Amino acid sequence: MDHWIVIPEQPGIVGERTVVDTSTHPPTVDRAHFVFTRPPVDGLIGAGPLLLVDREAAEALEDNVFGEVSLHSADLDTDPASGLVHVPDYVWCQVHGEAGMLDIGLTDDGRLVASGQALLVLHTFGGGIENATITEWNA
């Protein structure tokens, strides 16, 4: 099964209320806070150790992807300079799986690795992943 490294669009920054356990590899996010600095385009977005997906992509991942992924609420804010009036509707996508083992996983340094099936789901549902950087992953 081919797998790909996916670096999502980054329309914001990790917020100060994010709680990360850096004693684990990859680091474990225990609480997610994301601050939008511009409007997002894609359905998969992120910054640092945080991954967020829009509602449609979240439902599609739950229905179509085999991996250790759990979806949670996140603290979402907008930077006043962003011009955003409403906070976009995204959920925190916590990935627990190891890269290359199932459809979605993380490398030891926290990069997202997705199978072709997972990429198809992310391209098809929600806002897509047109602004993500996708490169072949070599285990």
Rank of each mutant, 00 (worst) to 15 (best):
G105F: 01
I104N: 00
H96E: 00
R38P: 02
F125Q: 03
E68W: 14
E62G: 11
D42V: 02
F125V: 04
V95Y: 03
V29E: 05
T18D: 07
V6H: 02
Q94N: 10
P26R: 08
H123A: 11
G100Y: 09
A47N: 10
V121F: 10
G97D: 01
F36C: 06
F66M: 12
V14Y: 03
T24P: 05
V35E: 08
L84Q: 06
V65Q: 07
H72Q: 15
P11T: 06
L119E: 04
H96F: 06
T37G: 10
I7Y: 09
T124L: 12
W137T: 08
V69H: 02
Q10V: 13
P49C: 02
D79R: 14
H86I: 08
V29K: 05
A32D: 05
L61I: 15
H96G: 14
I13V: 15
T78Q: 07
A139R: 10
E16K: 09
I104K: 00
H72M: 15
D63L: 12
Q10Y: 05
H86N: 13
T22G: 14
P49I: 00
V65E: 08
G12H: 05
L61K: 02
H72D: 06
A60Y: 03
V91N: 02
F66I: 15
G97R: 04
V29M: 07
V85N: 11
R55W: 07
P88G: 12
A32N: 09
S70I: 10
